[in-house]
Nucleic acid binder design. Structure first.
Lengths: 254, 254
DNA sequence: CTTGACACAGAACGCATGTTCGTGTTATCA
DNA sequence: TGATAACACGAACATGCGTTCTGTGTCAAG
């Protein structure tokens, strides 16, 4: 959002200093600085001030940040170029040659081929694949841009895809025919969406998982629906966690 | 100390995999992986095993580590060189430079960058973009594999993305935060999903569209919900058709 | 058969690290 | 002059993360 008022155009001294630190850390030690290392290097005494400036630099297009990740900062523009571009009061860096270069550099790595290991239905456990995907051919792969994956999963090599069969996942806001991208998991954090097999009901369901005081709460994605509470966590067999849902809208509804 | 016994010369499969992960992380996300991210990317379930291998790789001279620092790993030798130095045949190198170039060109073509032109809410018409996307920068693009698009849209150049804001699209099986990929359209075929602005209700909705005997039926994606019938088609302003929905499942539900 | 090296694994711990909150100061604008 | 935004800061919290410990299984050598 455009600020109503700014002290001056271009980059402030502290912004420039932070960009210079980001630039310098690429060379030595060869990885981005932490927030506290930026503090130290810029004589800023508070991590929240560094965070404040990093958010500005991200909004201006000079850096990218990955949230809740240590050292999750990418310098998008070389320092000298950023400082000189800022001299012309840029609000964001144009796509230009830099973006093209980045596109070419990252193109191969950006496109993941994820095997489709089967279908997910309510009446059977999830077909979690074996670890070796070598035998999958192109027709049983789904291609996903790496950038669409949540930050934590961008480096994953064991994702698999399932095609949804039937209307039983409606409470998860997942439609017949949707593709669910999953990661094998036997345990998850509270708040993550999981596929669970409820062995007392012979049923698979997709829900947000919470373990609260020894009891499991399975929260539907549809905010108008009520959670399931399960007193005995052993009936809940976690089969994987959901990282992404893809709906190709083309055909007629069934 | 020289090991008394080694299974075989050169690098083990896991060492090679770890080096490959270190190499790949330099490109995306642009900073070294954490120990746990190396775990995830190599199917090693224990951080101590990763630590065990990293210590070996450091001792062998392939990497440097800074202690008690997150992501404190520097790759000293490019992956290909490390692996060939270790005396192992490398599948990716053996594929040939020509094939690599061919893959690179194909990958660029396979990965579409679609501009995010705004948010879709119930209370306002859809922000359909102008035809020239040149001014969009990387932060307002979503990357989608061309193969995921419905057949008819694979050649489209005018797709745009919207981010869903609020719970008002639940009947379309679309969640707050989802990304909807759309194509500009003023007319659609029966059975296609559209974004329509109902100017008698000041409301945007996503539904399957049918024009039947001069009357519009708007069918929710959720099969348990009833359609809307509109006798006067002129109140239905088609703003675009939905070709894809993407849900990134990561954070806690709102 | 025993032994020791290697490979692997889970768990726990403590520190590293990012985010958020509340508060204060200063510059700008109407 | 008062209101407001920008700038600045300390503290606290929660999570990310590296290291260490303990244990188990496999296998080659003696």
């Amino acid at each position: 959002m455009m600020m109503a008022r700014k002290r001056k155009k271009g980059l402030s001294d502290r912004q420039k200093k932070i960009l210079e630190v980001l630039d310098r850390f690429q060379v030595d030690p060869g990885y981005p600085p932490s927030i506290r290392e930026i503090c130290d290097a810029t004589d800023i005494s508070s991590t929240s001030v560094v965070n404040y400036y990093l958010e500005q630099l991200q909004e201006m297009g000079f850096i990218e940040r990955d949230q809740h990740v240590s050292r999750g900062i990418r310098l998008l523009v070389p320092y000298e170029e950023a400082v000189s571009a800022a001299g012309s009061a840029l609000e964001s860096v144009s796509s230009g040659l830099k973006q093209t270069a980045r596109n070419l550099r990252q193109a191969v790595d950006e496109l993941l081929k994820i095997p489709i290991s089967g279908r997910i239905v309510a009446s059977a456990p999830v077909p979690v694949p074996q670890s070796d995907f070598g035998y999958y051919d192109a027709e049983s792969m789904v291609e996903v841009a790496r950038s669409l994956l949540p930050g934590r999963e961008k480096g994953s090599t064991d994702l698999f895809a399932l095609e949804v069969s039937g209307d039983s996942m409606i409470d998860a806001m997942v439609n017949d025919g949707d593709i669910v991208i999953m990661k094998p998991a036997k345990e998850v954090r509270n708040g993550e969406m999981v596929a669970v097999w409820l062995n007392d009901r012979d049923e698979t369901t997709l829900k947000y998982f919470y373990l609260e005081n020894g009891r499991v709460r399975l929260q539907p994605a549809n905010p108008t629906m009520n959670p399931i509470f399960i007193e005995d966590p052993s009936v809940v067999e976690i089969q994987g966690k959901v990282v992404m849902v893809i709906r190709q809208v083309g055909g007629l509804p069934s």
